[in-house]
Simulated scan of single mutants.
Amino acid sequence: MKKKKVISSALAMSFLFGAIAKPSLASNINTNSGFYKSSRTRQAYINLTNDQRKELDSMNTNNNGWLTIKEVKDHGRYSLPIVQGQSYLYPFMDDRNNNGMVGENETETPQSPAGTENTDQVNDQEVIEEVTDEEIENLEEDLNSNQETEENPSSNQETEENPVASQIPSDYLDRLEESLKNAKTTIAGAEILVKNMPKFSTQNGEIINNLIEKQNQIIARAEKLLVANGREVIID
């Protein structure tokens, strides 16, 4: 339990320090980058040089929050494995076994024995990302539109049994759950920060409060959409 609390605090502090970054620093950053939009990689992305950010974005062909082994291999400049502390690419990749290396099995034969899973395929699977504010707003519009239809159905139009659920794909709901979890983690870390660093918290009180308020808004909106689509939500 103590380990989880420390991890939560570290994640939230990283998110917070990203929010406190000076505007002059952010002016040279591609805010449309998938790495900037993801709270997991935002600070690491900000810390890169301009050339590194440009190269990283060019490698990230689908502009999501993760760099895959295939994208690194297709780029052709870097050899595998990508090692923590040795390559700037590491923070943006998925180290599934947490051994400090990504793609360490690439020297093995690409063909997998019958009945086993190819390691390359596992590492290149898409990882669930957070839902952006714009996507949440679009989902809320769909939800409100369908609720109005249920309350005032047209005489010539049959109301679907569950119109909201048919509007929102399952993968969006998975991402909403991830956003909900990350928002709660950020709030928990911010509260720990306020408790353990009172001087810093006093100096940056407005930023911290705005951060917590934004995360609470994400939680409320995500819970509403998830419940409307039959997903179980645990209220803390």
Rank of each mutant, 00 (worst) to 15 (best):
M1F: 14
M1C: 10
K4G: 07
V6R: 13
V6H: 08
A10D: 12
L11H: 04
L11A: 05
F15H: 03
L16I: 05
F17R: 03
K22C: 14
P23L: 06
L25N: 11
A26F: 10
S33L: 07
G34F: 00
S38T: 06
T41F: 01
T41S: 03
T41V: 06
R42C: 00
R42W: 05
D51M: 13
D51C: 06
E55D: 04
L56S: 08
T61W: 07
N63R: 08
L67N: 01
T68Y: 01
I69A: 05
K70G: 14
E71I: 02
V72G: 06
H75S: 13
R77Q: 12
L80E: 10
V83H: 08
Q84V: 07
Q86C: 12
S87M: 07
L89S: 08
F92N: 03
D94A: 13
R96H: 07
N98V: 02
N98T: 07
N98F: 15
N99T: 11
M101P: 00
G103S: 05
G103W: 01
E108R: 07
T109V: 15
A114H: 04
E117F: 12
N118I: 11
D120C: 07
Q121C: 12
D124L: 12
D124M: 09
D124V: 08
E134V: 06
I136V: 08
N138P: 04
E141F: 01
N144I: 02
S145Q: 03
S145I: 01
Q147K: 12
E151V: 11
N152Y: 09
N152K: 12
P153I: 10
P153E: 11
P153V: 14
S154P: 03
S155C: 15
S155M: 14
Q157G: 10
Q157T: 14
E158H: 11
T159E: 10
T159H: 04
T159V: 12
E160W: 01
E161N: 08
L176M: 07
E177C: 09
E178A: 13
E178L: 15
S179G: 13
T185L: 10
T185P: 03
T186S: 02
T186N: 01
T186I: 07
V194G: 10
N196R: 15
M197E: 15
P198L: 01
F200K: 00
F200E: 00
S201R: 02
S201D: 01
T202E: 13
N204C: 13
I208Y: 02
N216A: 00
Q217Y: 02
I219C: 00
I219E: 02
A222N: 03
K224T: 06
L226H: 14
G230E: 10
I235H: 12
I235F: 11
